Simulated assay, not measured.
Amino acid sequence: MTGSALVIGIGNDFRSDDGVGIAVAAEVASRRPPGVEVLSAVSDPGQILDAWADVPLVVVVDAASGPDVVAGRIRHWIPGDDHQPMMVSSHSLGLPEIYALGQALGRLPRRLVVLTVEIQDISHGVGLSPPVADAVPAAVEAVLAEVGRQP
C-alpha cells in the first residue's frame, strides 16, 4: 500500500444488504481521494491482514445486524470502545476475528476505524433495501471525513 489511508468495503453483493460495504467502497473509489486506496469484496482474511498491516489509517465499512437495529443507521467503532458492533459476515471469519488474528500476528493498521451500516435483509439477491441504500451517501461522507483527518 502506498497511500496514507486504506478503505476496505466488506460484504457480499449477492446477499442484499450485506453488499453495503462494497457499495460504499465503490463510491469512495469513484471519487478518487488523494492518498486513499480502496479494497472491496474481500473474501480472504489474509488479504485484509496483508493490506492493512502498518497502514497509517484503515477505514472498514461493513454491514451490522443484531438486536435493536435500525436499517440504515450508521455506527462508528474504534478498537478500545466499550461496545463492539455486531457485524454480519458471509465469510468464515468476521472483522472482529480478523482484528484479533491481526493482533496475535502483529499485523494491524496504526489506526482502525470501523463504520457499520445496520441492515435488514441478508437474503439471496442483488441490491440494497431502500433504507440501507439511502444510508450509502452518508456512509461515504463519513469515510471521507475520516480520511480527511489524516495528515
Results as ranks from 00 to 15, higher is better:
1 M>R: 14
5 A>I: 06
6 L>G: 08
11 G>N: 08
12 N>E: 12
14 F>K: 05
16 S>D: 04
20 V>Q: 07
23 A>W: 08
24 V>T: 03
25 A>H: 09
28 V>A: 08
29 A>I: 04
34 P>L: 03
37 E>K: 10
37 E>A: 15
39 L>A: 06
43 S>H: 11
46 G>Y: 13
47 Q>H: 13
47 Q>W: 07
49 L>Q: 13
53 A>N: 15
54 D>P: 01
55 V>P: 11
56 P>L: 00
56 P>Y: 00
56 P>E: 01
59 V>P: 10
59 V>D: 13
60 V>S: 03
61 V>Y: 02
61 V>Q: 09
64 A>T: 04
65 S>Q: 11
67 P>M: 12
68 D>F: 14
68 D>Q: 09
69 V>Y: 06
71 A>I: 04
72 G>A: 12
74 I>C: 05
74 I>G: 05
74 I>W: 02
75 R>P: 02
80 G>R: 04
85 P>W: 07
85 P>V: 09
86 M>R: 12
87 M>T: 14
91 H>I: 03
92 S>R: 15
93 L>K: 10
95 L>T: 12
96 P>V: 08
98 I>Q: 05
98 I>E: 07
99 Y>P: 01
100 A>I: 07
104 A>K: 11
104 A>M: 14
110 R>G: 12
111 R>V: 06
116 T>C: 02
118 E>A: 03
118 E>P: 02
119 I>M: 01
122 I>R: 03
122 I>C: 13
123 S>F: 06
123 S>N: 09
124 H>D: 13
125 G>M: 01
126 V>E: 15
129 S>K: 02
132 V>E: 02
133 A>I: 01
133 A>P: 02
136 V>Q: 04
137 P>E: 08
139 A>D: 04
139 A>Y: 00
141 E>V: 03
142 A>G: 00
142 A>E: 02
143 V>H: 01
143 V>K: 04
144 L>C: 03
148 G>M: 04
149 R>W: 06
